[in-house]
Design a protein around this nucleic acid. Structure first.
Length: 410
RNA sequence: GCCUGGGUGGGGUAGCUGGUCAUCCUAUGGGACUGUGGAUCCUACGACUCGGGUUCGAAUCCCGACCCGGGCCCCA
């Protein structure tokens, strides 16, 4: 084997593709029914789009190159930034809210492991123009719905960055970010150490630790006691209230930080078993990126589903399409081609292209799991008919081509 | 970038305490079978991931690279 596919990439064979397309269509259907329109952005963008959003630090994980015009180009490592760029570039004046979905490949230069590849696929949704809990709730509900339609069950964790941020408001922004990162990692020791380092007020530290440790039915109430009457808390309460209306099961988790600095309010993640260390199949939240890309400040909410991870664990299986094989003899090959062409208007039809003998053609039909075989022989043609053989029962009857077509398109 | 386990025909394997044509199963192509399918038989095809080193001799031992699995970092 001389040339292999690059590391972290995959080939998808017909069997696998059938399954992927099936799951993809389930996700698409869900997004469409909820009123989201499909969009597509370029495979590559100016690299600033991603460094602006995520910092220079991500350069190490980006596939980038200089094009012949000396422009720094990056293969998209994710799709939220391109969508917002698209919005700022051509949709700022359109009626709100804007609801988009997308399904595309992304590229990251990372060490591959279970559920992680260098070329991977994200199915995402963004709603632009609303900062209300209604849109946050809708987005979360849609995420759950999509996974459900793909046959995946997961644990939904919901948090709100505004709450922890409010608690940290007297701390310098850089320190805040560092703290959020440690919180997200659930690295309590590291967090304590860092708070020591920056001499964080003792009283605040206690509240922070209690806040991020909250869970269970009383979490919300205790959170309110810890934070007092703040805007973020009210928003969060309204959101959870709506999630109940949607009938969702969730866990309050104020320790979610999503690793990034641009999320502003609600954040959520969905975890699944059976994926090893990469157990997050979906993540998202509300954010404000439009301004960063030169547009007006616009609230948005969205998420991305790790499509490859869904494929890894999903239960849904497409049913195999019915297929038939037209078999013929040396002296009826041409007639058979014409008949196959007609039958293809109604059913998935194969015809021999290997110059095989009659018997081997039937054997092949058996190998590929054909439900029927249409026999085109001299005897049949003389009668103006063909023979339709049921591969399950072995029975066979003489029919006109039209009758066969009718029978098989059921 | 780091740690860890592993790479033998298309798939699955034996050999791996160095030494006959590298084993077996399966898949695939052709044939036995000139108008009827999962069987059988024959035949063809096809592998030691790559590069160095040790040795008279390496699939086997050593080193490196590449790739795969799992984990760490990261996870937009």
């Amino acid at each position: 084997m001389e040339i292999q596919r690059p590391r972290g990439t995959r080939d998808f064979l017909p069997g696998e593709m059938a399954k992927r397309r099936y799951i993809e269509s389930r996700l698409r259907e869900a997004a469409k029914r909820w009123g989201y329109g499909e969009i597509k952005t370029p495979t590559f963008e100016h690299i600033e789009l991603f460094t602006l959003k995520s910092g220079e630090g991500i350069l190490g994980e980006i596939y980038n190159f200089k094009d012949k015009g000396d422009r720094e180009i990056a293969l998209r490592p994710e799709l939220t930034a391109p969508v917002v760029r698209m919005y700022v570039e051509e949709l700022q004046r359109s009626p709100k809210p804007l609801k988009f979905y997308y399904f595309d490949n992304c590229f990251r230069y990372e060490r591959p492991q279970k559920g992680r590849f260098r070329e991977f696929f994200q199915f995402g949704v963004e709603i632009i123009g609303s900062s209300r809990p209604e849109s946050d709730a809708e987005v979360i509900a849609l995420a759950v719905e999509m996974l459900k339609s793909a046959g995946v069950r997961g644990d939904l964790h919901v948090g709100h960055l505004g709450i922890v941020r409010t608690l940290l408001k007297d701390i310098q922004p850089e320190h805040q970010n560092k703290i959020m990162r440690l919180v997200d990692k659930k690295d309590d020791k590291g967090l304590e150490q860092f708070l020591d380092e920056i001499n964080a007020p003792f009283e605040m530290r206690g509240r922070l630790f209690r806040l991020i440790g909250l869970h269970g039915v009383n979490a919300l109430q205790e959170a309110r006691e810890l934070t007092g009457d703040i805007e973020a808390m009210s928003q969060f309460e309204a959101l959870l209230d709506l999630l109940d209306v949607y009938g969702l099961e969730y866990q309050v988790d104020l320790g979610i930080a999503r690793g990034l600095d641009y999320y502003t309010g609600m954040v959520f993640e969905i975890y699944c078993e059976g994926l090893g260390a990469q157990n997050q199949v979906c993540g998202g939240g509300s954010y404000r990126l439009a301004q960063l890309f030169g547009g007006e400040d616009t609230p948005s909410t969205g998420y991305a589903i790790g499509f490859d991870r869904v494929m890894e664990i999903c239960q849904a299986v497409p049913e195999m399409e019915k297929r038939i094989v037209v078999v013929s003899f040396e002296d009826t090959r041409k007639e058979a081609i014409v008949i196959a062409k007609k039958l293809r208007e109604h059913v998935l039809t194969y015809i021999d292209v290997m110059g095989r003998k009659f018997k081997d053609q039937i054997s092949y039909a058996n190998t590929i799991g054909a439900s029927h075989v249409v026999i085109v022989g001299k005897n049949e043609l003389d009668a103006g008919k063909v023979a339709l053989k049921d591969m399950k029962t072995g029975e066979q009857e003489l029919l006109a081509v039209e009758e066969v077509a009718e029978r098989l398109s059921e």
